[in-house]
């Protein structure tokens, strides 16, 4: 599914070279739920951008879904992003002036799907994240958790090969965060491949594999033997809240 070989990314800023990623060899299979961890400056954002086909490698190769994308041009990369990748960002990145439904339709506009089919698929995706009754709201009429769910629906809607989530719970309170993780866990159980970038170990423990980066290199790759169940966590959190209120 994702296969990188000696993936290296070097930024040139005048005469200064910054090695953001050095010889990364990564292998993620279909149906995995992986967390990529590391402190800031570890190269995890750069990796995210490359895996998301927003950026190109300096050297090495990146094969996504059986296709080598490291040599592709802008136009083809845009197509790959559209068909094979679903992004979920920390700051949601919804268009503010259009409804949730229209936001979810956006990727399909660029894949040339007819208006009626677009609408139907967008409605289904929103139902899947539990927002059937909020379709016609604009982002500023939704809570943070709801906005992130719209973003997940948007990421799902084109049936991508992978979902890339960059700190998806970073702007949310812990309860909404658990809600989002619960959705990810459910999607993963249904077969979705999810790569999640985070610097919070609590969040990473919801996944089934944690890959750690430091100074642009892959330093640790460990399975999570007993992932945290987000639904249980939500129950615990509301218990705690109740106790404090009393």
């Amino acid at each position: 599914m994702i296969k990188t070989k000696n993936l290296t990314k070097i930024y040139k800023n005048g005469s200064i070279e910054v090695k953001a990623l050095v010889d990364v060899n990564l292998h993620i299979e279909n149906g995995e739920f992986v967390a990529i961890m590391g402190p800031s400056g570890s190269g995890k954002s750069t990796l995210m951008n490359i895996l998301g086909c927003l950026d190109r490698v300096t050297s090495g190769s990146y094969v996504l879904d059986g296709v080598d994308v490291s040599t592709m041009g802008d136009r083809e990369l845009a197509r790959i992003r559209n068909r094979k990748i679903g992004f979920v960002f920390q700051s949601f990145n919804l268009l503010p002036r259009i409804t949730a439904l229209h936001n979810v339709e956006l990727p399909m506009i660029y894949s040339g799907i007819s208006a009626r089919k677009r609408r139907k698929k967008a409605e289904l995706a929103l139902e899947k994240v539990g927002l059937a009754d909020r379709m016609h709201h604009k982002p500023n009429e939704l809570s943070g958790g709801q906005r992130q769910r719209v973003a997940i629906a948007r990421a799902l809607v084109n049936n991508p090969a992978i979902i890339l989530a960059d700190e998806p719970t970073g702007n949310l309170d812990s309860h909404s965060g658990e809600e989002i993780m619960a959705i990810f866990q459910r999607l993963n159980k249904e077969g979705a491949t999810i790569v999640l970038v985070t610097h919070e170990r609590d969040i990473a423990l919801h996944t089934r594999r944690i890959i750690s980066f430091r100074d642009g290199s892959l330093v640790k790759d460990e399975p999570v033997t007993k992932p945290v169940d987000a639904v249980d966590m939500m129950a615990k959190l509301s218990d705690m809240k109740d106790k404090h209120n009393i």
């Binding site: 998301g52 802008d74 992003r81 559209n82 992004f87 956006l106 660029y110 948007r154 084109n158």
Partner: peptide, 16 residues
């Protein structure tokens, strides 16, 4: 600018 970034991340190419 941000809207353009979002659209590009969702698959819009330069021509779009």
């Amino acid at each position: 600018t941000r809207e353009i970034g979002i659209r590009k991340s969702l698959g819009a190419n330069r021509n779009d």
